[in-house]
């Protein structure tokens, strides 16, 4: 450790590799963001140069703000993502706890059944889901999206979390039982904090596909009041003409909330790892 740190060429080498990787990873994002601040001509003439005084143009953002109700779309996306995430984490963790902690008939079968969803894409069931939503009057509601995304996120969440929950010390749970804690307290106060890193991982993996999804909003909730950001941005992509300024501006804006959510969970992730479990 000290040897590696004291060796200057190695430090520089490591930083060079990491910086190069960061540049590659950030490149597309940066291109989108800088171009969203440029006029249409400048975007095509020199897509890689940052906006200058004469190419700087907020026309994209103005279009986005003027066209449709983008704040509403944002709000919809956020509500759907956060609600689904909350439900996936809550129910996923509870199911994982039950599967890893209690011996009951059909425990293994139940685990397999719940994990099956990892292998079968939920979109195969779109027609049935649509019929279900029509029958229950949930078409064009955010509830429909939240329900579908919760179902979509649960299998992987249960699969990952139950592996981690098996590693939580039995003695700790038993100590809680002897001290008179209810199973709910044991779950929420003893087990959940110890699997926080796993929860953060699951949260990140669950969140991104939901935020980016275009399929289910298009089918289940295309109404103006329930549009999500991804769906809202589609109005600028036409069959013949695409309003690139607006598309890029919408995309730049759409990155922000994900970034914020990501920072929340990555902090949790680091805290979870450093606090650790006490044997």
């Amino acid at each position: 450790m000290s040897k590696a740190a004291s060796s200057l060429p190695r430090t520089i080498g490591a930083h060079a590799v990491l910086l190069a990787y960061t540049a590659i990873a950030l490149f597309p994002v940066i291109v989108i963001v800088i171009n969203s601040f440029k006029s249409r001509n400048a975007i095509f003439r020199s897509p890689l140069s940052p906006p200058t005084a004469e190419t700087f143009d907020l026309i994209g953002y103005k279009t986005v703000m003027a066209q449709g109700d983008f704040f509403l779309y944002f709000q919809n996306s956020l509500i759907v993502t956060v609600m689904s995430l909350f439900l996936v984490l809550l129910f996923g963790a509870m199911a994982a706890f039950a599967l890893s902690e209690y011996r009951f008939k059909g425990n293994t079968m139940m685990g397999l059944y719940l994990a099956l969803g990892i292998m079968i894409p939920i979109r195969l069931g779109t027609v049935a889901i649509l019929q279900l939503m029509v029958a229950s009057g949930l078409v064009n509601t955010l509830t429909a999206l939240v329900l579908v995304y919760t179902a979509q996120g649960l299998p992987l969440a249960i699969f990952i979390l139950s592996e981690f929950m098996k590693q939580v010390s039995d003695d700790l749970k038993n100590a809680g039982r002897i001290d008179g804690l209810s199973e709910y307290r044991i779950f929420f106060r003893l087990v959940l904090p110890l699997v926080r890193p796993a929860m953060a991982t699951v949260a990140v993996f669950t969140m991104i596909p939901i935020w980016n999804d275009l399929w289910f909003p298009l089918i289940l909730a295309p109404s103006e009041a329930t549009k999500t950001v991804t769906l809202g941005a589609q109005v600028f992509i036409g069959q013949f003409v695409t309003n690139w300024n607006a598309v890029l501006a919408a995309l730049s804006l759409a990155i922000l909330p994900v970034l914020i959510l990501y920072f929340i969970f990555s902090r949790q992730l680091i805290r979870g790892i450093t606090s650790g479990a006490v044997k």
């Binding site: 010390s169 003695d171 100590a175 106060r189």
Partner: peptide, 20 residues
């Protein structure tokens, strides 16, 4: 009778203290 009502206390090999 549930563990907490049996009038027992237990010490575990892995201590099992509540970390928080």
């Amino acid at each position: 009778v549930p563990p907490a009502k049996r009038g027992i206390a237990m010490v575990f090999q892995t201590y099992a203290l509540y970390p928080h």
